[in-house]
């Protein structure tokens, strides 16, 4: 941990406590009816209820399962596609350019098409998640591979390294800092795409819990689920990407 990390954590804890107090104060003040603006007690109560009856656990598992599968496909396909882009100029000039355009399309726009193609099932959601994240991973991989310092490749070639071995032992590890940036961005796109898709197409998952909260006019449940989504996202970021990035930055002498 950085020097001053303990102090930072203390600051954050104090800030969260103050926020909680403010929220409770606003709820007590009663500017808005309770069913529109629930206080901490209602929201945590709702969270507790969902945790006890197992609906929260099931939703989290379903959503993370979809995320894991969709993201794994994206990470593999995106990296492979990125390597192909960097290897074949004509592919980058055509499909690469096209995917830059496709990236401007919010991935949830793929859902109607996905529903027509795959029907009302998991494949449709998976399609949206993959389309939302695969291109950012492939673009980052392509740029990372293109910017590998040529001297590493020259050095490897003079040491008798060539062909596929050169790719796996030198080019990809050398491009890894950029690939990791793409993977992180791709992960957050996948997470957003998944939530959007689950919201629109009702199927068990966190998006569905949000939606059912709306249907029962249960603002406390909606707020509780939003909190869970934020905490999950932050936790995955802190547990997976932050340490990886730190390690890569140190090794490559970027810190």
């Amino acid at each position: 941990m950085r020097p001053g990390g303990g102090k930072r954590a203390l600051q954050m804890a104090a800030f969260l406590a103050a926020l909680l107090l403010l929220w409770q104060g606003l709820a007590w003040a009663g500017f808005w009816p309770r069913y529109l603006f629930p206080g901490p007690r209602q929201v945590f109560g709702s969270l507790w209820g969902m945790a006890l009856d197992g609906s929260l656990g099931r939703a989290v598992l379903r959503s993370l399962g979809r995320l894991g599968l969709g993201y794994a496909i994206s990470a593999l396909a995106g990296t492979a596609l990125g390597v192909l882009f960097s290897r074949f100029g004509w592919l980058e000039a055509t499909l690469g350019r096209l995917s830059l355009g496709l990236q401007t399309l919010p991935s949830i726009c793929w859902l109607p098409l996905a529903l027509i193609w795959f029907g009302l099932n998991e494949k449709a959601i998976l399609f949206v998640v993959v389309m939302g994240s695969v291109l950012s991973i492939s673009m980052a991989t392509e740029s990372g591979v293109r910017h590998v310092p040529p001297v590493w490749i020259r050095a490897a070639r003079t040491m008798g390294c060539s062909g596929a071995r050169l790719y796996f032992k030198v080019v990809l590890p050398a491009a890894f800092p950029s690939i990791l940036t793409g993977l992180k961005q791709g992960w957050s796109f996948a997470w957003r795409s998944l939530m959007a898709a689950e919201l629109i197409y009702s199927t068990p998952g966190l998006g569905f819990l949000l939606n059912s909260g709306r249907e029962f006019n249960d603002a406390a449940q909606v707020m509780a689920v939003i909190g869970v989504i934020i905490v999950l996202g932050t936790a995955i970021n802190q547990a997976v990407f932050a340490p990886l990035e730190g390690r890569v930055r140190r090794r490559f002498g970027l810190d």
Partner: peptide, 8 residues
């Protein structure tokens, strides 16, 4: 510039 591999 040596061209050592920082990932190793």
């Amino acid at each position: 510039d040596l061209a050592l591999f920082p990932w190793l």
